[in-house]
Design a binder for these strands. Structure first.
Lengths: 160, 160
DNA sequence: CAGTATCCGGTGCGATACTG
DNA sequence: CAGTATCGCACCGGATACTG
């Protein structure tokens, strides 16, 4: 028996997708990364109905990715916005990797609609997988996948 | 008017999600990265019905992420498997970033079920966003987002 | 401005049965 | 082993109306 027979029910990819794997969450988060954080701005930027946006925002707040904050600009009335938490900010590589793949494979002839640049120097950014030791950029074939400490076997009843 | 009023319909995140943003595609691809590539192995590893798996595989083949290949091991009969294309392999940062986030925020006490390591040296890998110039690892707040060559305005009728 | 409540419809999914 | 065909249902999302 190889590790290929390990269960994937507790896989982190699956668990993450259970939180943000629906049709709207990642798009809402992308807007939040871009600075669009108010309810009505989100309804304009995403063509999403108010009721759906409301539900998604609540689930993202419940999951600890966004927090609802009241704020008041100088001499203006109080408004609400949804701010990324640290937990939410850590999804930056996910969003960037999705964007990068789309830029490379699905962009218009004109090019991508958005660019993300390093604030300090203005150069483009890239999402990569690296070795934590020497920092070398790795492709899938440079890596080996194996069971981790939480590994479980594929349940017997699903085997023939 | 700021670039916050730019349209996001042609956003690369959205386009990518249109291809792999459903409930199963990324899990199928994760299995493919792990070396699980035959139809019946996939049905055991993912608790997905055969009809759904069939449809998802076809859409992934149509999108050019997988290719269906017949092969024959020594003295065995011909079998089929679904192999990642170059295009599919380039989703490695997406899968890795999702897994990393789940490892950090949603794992069991026991730890994650899987680990991905650099084949040469055995050290763990990480998904990061870097500056293409100096290679510095960046968080969301280190970056600036702006319109790219394919940018479009938010359509007037959706504004008030 | 910032939502909630309600209803309704389509799509995707799962179960089951069947084929080469 | 590697799928396809069919069907029913649940859920998600859209539209609309309404509230503080």
């Amino acid at each position: 028996m190889s590790w290929l027979e390990l269960d994937t029910e507790n896989c982190s990819v699956q668990r993450t997708l259970d939180v943000i794997g629906d049709r709207w969450s990642l798009l809402i988060l992308r807007e939040a990364f871009n600075g669009v954080r108010r309810f009505d701005d989100l309804t304009r930027h995403l063509s999403v109905s108010e009721s759906v946006l409301s539900r998604r925002l609540r689930s993202l707040v419940d999951a600890g990715l966004l927090e609802r904050v009241a704020y008041r600009a100088e001499r203006q009335r109080t408004r609400q916005h949804y701010r990324l938490t640290d937990r939410g900010l850590e999804l930056f590589p996910v969003i960037t990797a999705l964007m990068q793949w789309g830029d490379r494979h699905l962009a218009d002839d004109a090019g991508p609609a958005w660019t993300v640049r390093h604030g300090d120097c203005g150069h483009a950014v890239e999402a990569v997988v690296r070795c934590t030791d020497d920092g070398q950029v790795l492709t899938a074939t440079d890596t080996k996948t194996g069971p981790g400490p939480g590994a479980r076997l594929v349940s017997p009843e699903s085997r023939h």
